[in-house]
Simulated scan of single mutants.
Amino acid sequence: MAEIDWTARTKNLLKAELKKRGVSYRELAEKLTAIGIPETERNIANKISRGGFTGAFLIQCLVAIGATTLRLDDIS
């Protein structure tokens, strides 16, 4: 069985959800701030490009953009 790059899969999942909803990093920063999680566009870009963010950050982003379901079989 091939080794899975879970970091890349998680990063791709978040990027896909943002793209699906047409949400830029700037808009995500505004949405996160609106729910009490202050983030800058630059911080978000850095976290996502590295892929080294926490599960909590992933959930915060998904809540902020209004995601209610995820299809894990859509990511690679």
Rank of each mutant, 00 (worst) to 15 (best):
G51P: 05
T69A: 10
N12V: 02
A56F: 09
I59F: 08
A29H: 05
I37M: 09
G51H: 00
A67K: 04
W6Y: 15
D74Q: 13
G51S: 09
K11T: 13
T69C: 06
V23L: 03
I44Q: 00
E17S: 05
R9N: 14
A2W: 06
K31H: 03
L70C: 11
L72M: 11
G52R: 15
T10Y: 13
E30R: 03
T10P: 08
G22C: 07
N12Y: 04
L28A: 08
Y25H: 09
A34K: 08
F57V: 13
P38Y: 02
D74A: 15
C61Y: 02
L18E: 02
A64Q: 04
G22I: 03
A67M: 04
V23E: 05
S76R: 15
A16V: 01
N12A: 12
Q60I: 01
T10M: 14
D5T: 04
L18P: 01
I59T: 06
G66S: 06
L58T: 11
I4L: 11
A67R: 07
T69R: 11
T33Y: 09
T7S: 14
L32S: 01
D73Y: 05
L72A: 14
A45N: 08
L32N: 00
L28G: 05
T54Y: 15
V63W: 00
Q60K: 10
K19I: 03
E39H: 11
T54S: 15
E27N: 07
